[in-house]
Simulated assay, not measured.
Amino acid sequence: MIGVNRLTSNSELQNLDLIDLLSERHTLVRRISEKAWNDQSEIYISNSEWYIMARIYKKRPTISYVTKNVDISRQAIHKFIKNLAAKGLVKIQNVENNKKEKCIQLTALGEECYEKNAALKAQLENEIAEKIGVKQVNILKDILKLDWRI
């Protein structure tokens, strides 16, 4: 799975600063993850749609909560939610005692897709660990979880 459309050669990576290194690696693993999903599924799900699905997995947040807590424009979030609903991945319901608010949750199909994709991402993480070492992957994850105070 690894190595799909390498973005930058290793020699080019040596000259990048932290911000650009993070960006290059993020883009690479997202592209590989997206390809892995699309190679095994009939349902195309964009990275932004996955991002929204991750925020609502096993929850029933309001759409306004999602809008405030996802770093995508309000209009785009509404578009992505409509797309997800059209694909049968989410259902939108009225909030009890509130005519304005709507809540969103994954359907059974949405949860199944989310869980299959989580397994694909775990497989990719294992492949990365095989290449750079389990200890290095764990160190990297710990560093990324730290409060950087920025």
Results as ranks from 00 to 15, higher is better:
Lys102Gly: 01
Glu101Arg: 09
Gln40Met: 13
Glu42Cys: 02
Ser33Gly: 15
Ser48Glu: 13
Val66Arg: 03
Thr67Leu: 08
Glu101Phe: 03
Thr107Ser: 14
Asp39Val: 02
Glu42Tyr: 06
Arg60Ser: 15
Glu101Ile: 00
His78Met: 01
Ile104Gly: 05
Ile81Gln: 03
Gln40Ala: 14
Ile81His: 00
Ser46Pro: 02
Cys103Phe: 09
Arg55Lys: 15
Trp50Gln: 06
Ile77Gln: 01
Asp39Thr: 10
Leu106Met: 15
Arg74Met: 01
Ile72Gln: 02
Arg60Thr: 15
Ile104Pro: 10
Ser64Asn: 13
Lys91Trp: 03
Asn38Ser: 15
Asn83Leu: 09
Lys35Val: 14
Ala86Val: 01
Arg55Asn: 15
Asn69Gln: 07
Lys99Glu: 12
Ser33Asn: 13
Ala54Val: 01
Lys58Val: 10
Val95Phe: 05
Pro61Met: 04
Glu101His: 04
Trp50Ala: 08
Cys103Gln: 13
Pro61His: 08
Glu96Thr: 11
Ile72Asp: 00
Asn47Met: 11
Tyr44Ala: 12
Tyr44Cys: 04
Ile104Gln: 03
Val90Arg: 06
Lys100Cys: 00
Ile81Trp: 01
Leu106Trp: 03
Thr67Val: 14
Lys68Phe: 09
Lys102Thr: 04
Asn94Asp: 13
Ser64Lys: 13
Arg55Leu: 06
Gln40Lys: 15
Ile77Gly: 00
Lys82Val: 00
Tyr51Gln: 09
Tyr57Trp: 11
Ile92Thr: 14
Asn69Lys: 09
Ile92Gly: 01
Ile43Arg: 09
Arg31Tyr: 12
Ile72Tyr: 06
Glu42Ala: 11
Ile45Lys: 03
Gln75Ala: 12
Glu101Val: 00
Arg60Asp: 13
Lys35Met: 13
Glu96Asp: 14
Ile72Thr: 05
Lys59Gly: 01
Asn94Phe: 06
Lys58Thr: 13
Arg60His: 09
Lys100Arg: 12
Asp71Arg: 13
Tyr44Pro: 10
Gln75Glu: 11
Lys68His: 12
Ala36Gly: 05
Lys87Arg: 13
Gln93Tyr: 06
Lys59Leu: 14
Asp71Leu: 07
Cys103Asn: 14
Thr62Asn: 07
Lys35Gly: 02
